[in-house]
Design a protein around this nucleic acid. Structure first.
Length: 876
DNA sequence: CGAACCTTTGAGTTA
DNA sequence: CAAAGGTTCG
């Protein structure tokens, strides 16, 4: 057997693009051009077409390339037609990219690849063609989280469950989790079903499912779960897909959850004989339920447990641990079970598994060989992305994880710049320092598109946005709220959904009083009662109620108009194009007008979004087609042509790369996230560490880490300590730099485990507002820790008490800026007048009784009379 | 009914 | 600090 892990001394061909026109020549040439640029491991991964293959592809090792080349290879070898290849990704972006690259590689020869898409879009597609088997119609609606929660709220109310104690969101999370694990209501372990709502959790799940059927709707989880159910209950349908898909490719396999795993598993078996029991489809599976569950375990490590055969036990001994930890492991040679898995190729990286919270089972990748006997495992360890120091830092960091298959990334690139670690006093200074570094990079000719800031949590983004706006630096936020999750888009869609399917109560309810037309809670409640009593859709109930005098004349008139409008729109649907119809609806309903009248800052943007929505409808044949795809396909990442710094979370950065990567917020509690640690313990810590690894490996040439000593959490400042991940970096590859804001530590200091401990030695003469507030906090003592954010007043020292030289080397240091700001507010006379009513974050409401420059004396309603600096209160 | 005012609570990542 | 929920008043 070849040993794919030894790096041969031969030079590695770089990853040059492969040009088109391949398919035809491929058959003739001994080495098809698309294979020429591949290194031996990549090539093996592409050419091993038969049987299960697991490609362990570290960051930057050419994973997408392998996938696309493999498809090209399958096609050019004539092993399958485009419609016979199932290729799944997690994101639309990844799917698009693969299609794009494939198009380039094959020179448009293969238009289509109808089964290349996300798990959800393919699952949705399959579900639509067999909707009746899931008690749905093929035009079912895909609910977003918002609809889901509103529906659950109604169910909770019907059950008289206290929503305070048992929030609908929590139930939504539970149901989601069950669906991720492939569990239908009857399969939920009893122990888990009773934890919610005084034992009613399971019952709520099943009534939720019932309601979905009535509403002709499915949630995201259903797109896969219903597939699985259909496959299980209708072997003929399963067989149809099994024989259609000759090859299966899976991207990011480490992110699959149990449902996705089962789905793949079912599809990847060779077509079974009609009537074969499920146990022959899933080897090793026993029992009646598809997913054997740990009845008592709330968090079972291995939700799908397939009994290990004795052969495999022996093999485990070879590698010395339960998880194969070394590449030298013997591929399983045992006889294939009754239904041998066919040509499935999964590509993934256990070190990049960062979606455990979404139900991903790293275990799926760790036990691939187990699940697909005879699997060939290929490792890609040559990194073509990052320079030496960055790669070494990332590898050293991830080596602290215990649960991993173990890969060693190598590069032949130069060492490059060391990874830098910079401490800042607070998050504002962190943003300032990064802003300056970016300006410096820009001056040195760096393209802004090659710069990214990757944060752990999205709330961190705001400070960077603020900073970039003042600097006039263009930036773009990647990820963030999806286009179709925006309120105005959902409202517009709700109108269209109501037109399209009158039984869509959730949609109708959403817009019944948007814009305001005098149909408040009371009226809606009434309609609900009416609908429930007669078991008819809300819209029909409305129609009936208008004929009675149960509503007040005003509401009745409004409702009648609304119903008339919908009737009119539905009629127009026959004669106008769907885009025109959308415009008419938005217009006549008064929805556009509502935003036009709105004077708030984002109203214009919302109107733009609505226009964008209408424009995007043009790509679809009709309203039906549009609505079917909107929730699955609409993710916008447009406008990538303009030069801009990218700002995003670490999660959404997966799969991307940049020349320069800034990684702020490496502090305990934030990163690793305290919540993850609390909830997931060691596994959570390892996932956070993988996230750090993902962040570092996004960088090609420069990786710059930051931590701040003070950060605002929930609006109050608190002191933080540097992340343990910083301590886990190899000293040799890391350089500790002075904060641009100045600091008294670091620099030449030793590099030991506690090198970040002396946070107190940070410049004690800081003058940022954050520092002042923190000082004020400290002066007040630590026991009353909260509510101190705005507490600082008369001990307000001079902002210029002890300026430090290292601040002001020729560029405007942060201090000067802050100095100006502070000086300004002390210099001007107060904008407040006597008796003004004011609000203070800590002391609450009060009124001004005395003014002395910028210091106010305020009589607070609750806290009594206090002296406060004017900037800490707002007039109301 | 709805706006205005006030209180409370909560910020983790997403197909 | 912001959004969401609750209360009160017009």
């Amino acid at each position: 057997m070849t040993e794919p892990n030894r790096l041969t001394p031969r030079s590695v061909p770089d990853h040059q693009p492969v040009s088109g026109g391949i398919a035809a020549r491929a058959r003739a040439a001994s080495t098809p051009p698309y294979l020429a640029g591949l290194n031996p491991e990549q090539r093996e991964a592409v050419e091993t077409l038969d049987g299960p293959v697991l490609v362990l592809a570290g960051a930057g090792t050419g994973k997408t390339r392998v996938l696309t080349c493999r498809i090209a290879h399958i096609l050019s070898q004539g092993r399958a037609r485009p419609g016979e290849i199932l290729s799944v990704t997690f994101t639309n972006k990844a799917a698009r990219e693969m299609k794009l690259r494939l198009g380039q590689m094959l020179g448009q020869a293969v238009e289509g690849m109808p089964w290349l898409g996300t798990f959800h879009s393919i699952g949705g597609r399959i579900l639509r063609s067999h909707a009746e088997l899931a008690q749905l119609k093929s035009n079912f609606t895909v609910l977003d989280v918002d609809d889901q929660v509103r529906l659950l709220k109604q169910l909770l109310q019907a059950e008289n469950i206290d929503e305070k104690r048992w929030p609908a969101r929590m139930l939504a999370g539970l149901i989601d989790g069950w669906k991720n694990r492939g569990l239908t209501p009857s399969q939920v372990p009893a122990g888990e079903a009773i934890v919610f709502g005084n034992g009613k959790g399971g019952k709520l799940y099943s009534s939720y499912q019932e309601r979905l059927k009535i509403l002709n709707a499915a949630d995201f989880g259903d797109l896969l779960l219903e597939n699985i159910r259909i496959f299980r209950e209708h072997p003929d349908v399963l067989r149809q897909y099994q024989s259609r898909f000759k090859f299966i490719l899976v991207d990011e396999y480490q992110d699959t959850n149990v449902a996705q795993y089962l789905w793949l598993r079912l599809l990847s078996q060779a077509p079974s004989k009609p009537g074969a029991p499920l146990s022959s489809i899933i080897p090793g599976y026993t029992g009646s339920a598809v997913v054997p569950t740990h009845a008592e375990g709330v968090n079972p490590d291995v939700p799908l447990h397939i009994k290990e055969s004795e052969d495999e036990d022996k093999q485990s001994q070879d590698s010395g641990s339960a998880l194969p930890a070394h590449p030298g492991m013997t591929p399983s040679t045992q006889a294939a079970p009754s239904a041998p898995p066919k040509n499935i190729c999964c590509v993934g990286d256990d070190d990049q598994s960062i979606y455990g919270w979404r139900g991903a089972e790293v275990d799926n990748i760790l036990r691939f060989e187990h699940d697909f006997p005879g699997a060939k495992v290929i490792r890609l360890e040559r990194n073509y992305r990052s320079t030496g120091h960055i790669l070494a830092a990332a590898s050293h960091l991830i080596a602290h994880n215990e649960s991993r298959l173990g890969k060693t990334l190598r590069t032949e690139d130069v060492d490059g710049e060391k990874v830098t670690v910079t401490g800042a006093w607070d998050s504002e200074e962190e943003a300032r320092a990064i802003g300056e570094e970016i300006e410096e990079l820009q001056r040195s000719g760096e393209n802004l598109n090659e710069i990214a800031i990757l944060v752990r949590a999205s709330f961190q983004m705001r400070e960077f946005e603020d900073r970039f706006v003042t600097l006039g630096l263009s930036y773009r936020v990647i990820g963030g709220p999806r286009f179709y999750e925006r309120a105005e888009i959902r409202d517009a869609l709700a109108y269209l959904r109501t037109i399209n399917s009158p039984a869509d109560d959730l949609a109708f309810e959403r817009i019944i009083n948007v814009p305001k037309r005098g149909l408040g809670d009371a009226s809606v409640q009434m309609l609900h009662d009416h609908a429930r009593k007669r078991r008819i859709p809300l819209f029909e109930a409305a129609r009936a109620v208008v004929e009675t005098d149960e509503l007040k004349p005003k509401a009745r008139g409004a409702l009648r108009d609304l119903i008339a409008s919908f009737d009119r729109w539905r009629a127009q649907r026959e004669v106008t194009s769907h885009t025109e119809l959308a415009e008419i609806v938005l217009d006549e309903s008064g929805y556009t007008e509502m935003w036009q009248k709105d004077r708030s800052a984002d109203a214009a943007g919302r109107l733009d979004n609505l226009k964008e929505l209408v424009r995007s409808m043009e790509e679809f044949e009709n309203l039906q087609g549009f609505l079917e795809h909107i929730s699955l396909v609409m993710d916008r990442d447009g406008g990538a042509d303009e030069q801009a710094v990218s700002l995003m979370t670490l999660h959404s950065a997966k799969g991307l790369e940049f020349g320069n990567v800034f990684l702020p917020g490496w502090e305990e509690g934030l990163f690793p996230s305290q919540r993850t640690l609390d909830e997931q313990g060691r596994a959570g810590l390892e996932e956070e560490r993988r996230l750090a690894h993902v962040g570092l490996t996004r960088a090609r040439r420069r990786a710059k880490l930051y931590f701040a000593t003070n950060r605002r959490i929930h609006g109050t400042w608190s002191t933080t300590i540097p992340s343990r991940f910083l301590d886990e970096l190899p000293a040799h590859n890391v350089e500790i730099t002075e904060s641009k804001g100045g600091s008294g530590w670091g620099g030449a200091g030793g590099y030991g485990p506690s090198r970040f401990d002396n946070v107190e030695s940070f410049g004690s003469s800081y003058t940022t507002p954050g520092w002042q507030r923190a000082q004020a906090n400290r002066a007040r003592g630590q026991e009353n820790r909260q509510g101190q954010a705005r507490g600082g007043f008369d001990e307000n020292q001079s902002p210029f008490s002890s300026p430090r030289d290292d601040f002001s080397r020729n560029k405007r240091g942060p201090m000067v800026i802050e100095g100006e700001l502070v000086a300004k507010s002390t210099g001007t006379t107060s904008e407040f007048s006597l008796d003004d009513r004011v609000f203070h974050q800590k002391f609450g409401y009060g009124h001004v009784v005395k003014i002395d420059g910028n210091k106010l004396t305020i009589a607070f309603e609750k806290a009594g009379e206090k002296k406060v600096v004017d900037s800490f209160v707002e007039r109301i």
